[in-house]
Amino acid sequence: MNSMPWHKQAAALWKKDIRAEMRTRVATGSMGVFALSALLLIALSMLSVKGVEYRDALGRLKPAWDDAGKMALLWTLLCFAAFTGLAHPFVHEEESGTSLALRLYMSAEAVYAGKLLFNLTTLAAMMLVITPAYMLLTGMNTGRLILFFPIMIGGCFGLGSVATVVAALAAKAKSSGALFGAIGLPILVVFLILLMQAAHLCYAGNATPISIVKDVGGLVSFGVMIVALSAMLFHFIWDD
């Protein structure tokens, strides 16, 4: 009997997860409610600094809460929201005992690819809802669209890839829910720094091509490196 190509297995797993998610709505529901409440809190707590201006080191007047700052808060929100829901696909398989059958029926790489794809899909769906709502409530501009979209997509990719591998690790430990955020967020802090650096470009008028390549490239390469390492190491996590 020939073995199945991994991408077909991954696609089947992705479809299965999407279907289960449509029925139970555990991941999207928890992420959505978390993100919306956090969104509301941010918008309310930032009302007080809405019109405030401050003088920077060069003596220029600047709004205290500018677009880059709004972008930074948006990503902080998205990170925490992602970490409320993205552990579910792995933790659910381990806790309900279905992971044993998956281990027999699928190769480890296919499981990783399927779960990564599912997490990226859920994350993208959440971002499609949250980002416009956030922009409406806080008045954040997109800045230069040619940079805004790569940054959002690169951010989604990096966030999803970190969450996937950390969820796989946490699912194997006891009290995985508590561990998930604790071991994932320190990795993401670095990613957020890169992201905020890149976000400045969106709103800075004087972005040079070199700085664009450097910052957006750094952002994307972070996700690519995490995915490459995770794919290489996933069978150590997945197999007993």
């Binding site: 690790l169 194997k172 430990a173 006891k174 561990l179 071991i183 390492l229 150590f236």
Partner: peptide, 27 residues
């Protein structure tokens, strides 16, 4: 923290924490 969460089996602890060390090399 991950190591304390994996105290049941020494092999699993070794394997998973090794994976974490390598993945966290990126940040």
């Amino acid at each position: 923290l991950l190591r304390t969460g994996l105290s049941r089996s020494p092999e699993k602890k070794a394997r998973l924490s090794a994976v974490y060390t390598i993945v966290a090399l990126v940040p």
